[in-house]
């Protein structure tokens, strides 16, 4: 498997992403990854807060529209994430911190789909009751995924030439 990661990393595109020094390579991909996080985790947090009782006058069904923002954020981050992974495949695929992050991303997406079901069918009392628990689990998953993502720059195998502090 390591040979495969190594091969991916050595592709000219991966090398360009990692080493070109162009702002349009690694830096812009990382920026998109941050913006996608804001869209997915941020709007998800707002919906979860609503399910937990914040802003009770906001009809739950009216928040359906915000799921498109979250899914846009998800796909922006899935694509930018694949590019970031290609650039540093050997480091990230062998990093336990990355594994933890992926675990919580997958759990977060599964729960997001369940929450979407609640918000799209708020007239169903059974679903609505499960909404609170799902909201808490969802907040936990995304906080942990964000935390693990951030800590990839500090824990486990490291890449790049940037200093140990700030990446």
């Amino acid at each position: 498997m390591y040979e495969f990661y190594s091969w991916v990393e050595s592709l000219s595109f991966s090398t360009w992403l990692r080493e070109s020094g162009s702002l349009w390579s690694y830096p812009i991909v990382l920026t998109l990854h941050t913006m996608g996080l804001g869209m997915l985790v941020g709007f998800n947090a707002a919906v979860n807060l609503r399910l937990l009782g914040i802003a009770p006058e906001v009809p739950i069904a009216s928040m359906q529209r915000f799921f498109s923002v979250m899914w846009w954020g998800f796909w922006i981050n899935a694509s930018s994430g694949i590019l970031l992974l290609m650039a540093d495949a050997t480091t990230k695929m062998t990093s336990w911190v990355f594994g933890v992050k992926m675990l919580f991303v997958v759990l977060g997406v599964v729960i997001l789909r369940k929450i979407q079901n609640v918000v799209f069918h708020p007239e169903n009392p059974e679903l609505l009751k499960s909404g609170r628990l799902l909201a808490i689990l969802s907040l936990c998953c995304w906080v942990l995924a964000t935390t693990a993502g951030r800590l990839m720059a500090y824990l486990g195998p490291q890449v790049g030439v940037a200093g140990p502090q700030v990446r």
Partner: peptide, 24 residues
């Protein structure tokens, strides 16, 4: 530093999401 970076990103999400719902 890592702790503050993590909190900075969680704060980012809260700001973008909770202000974003009103903007949109």
């Amino acid at each position: 530093w890592p702790l503050c970076e993590t909190l900075h990103f969680i704060g980012l999400a809260m700001l973008i999401g909770c202000i974003g719902v009103i903007d949109l």
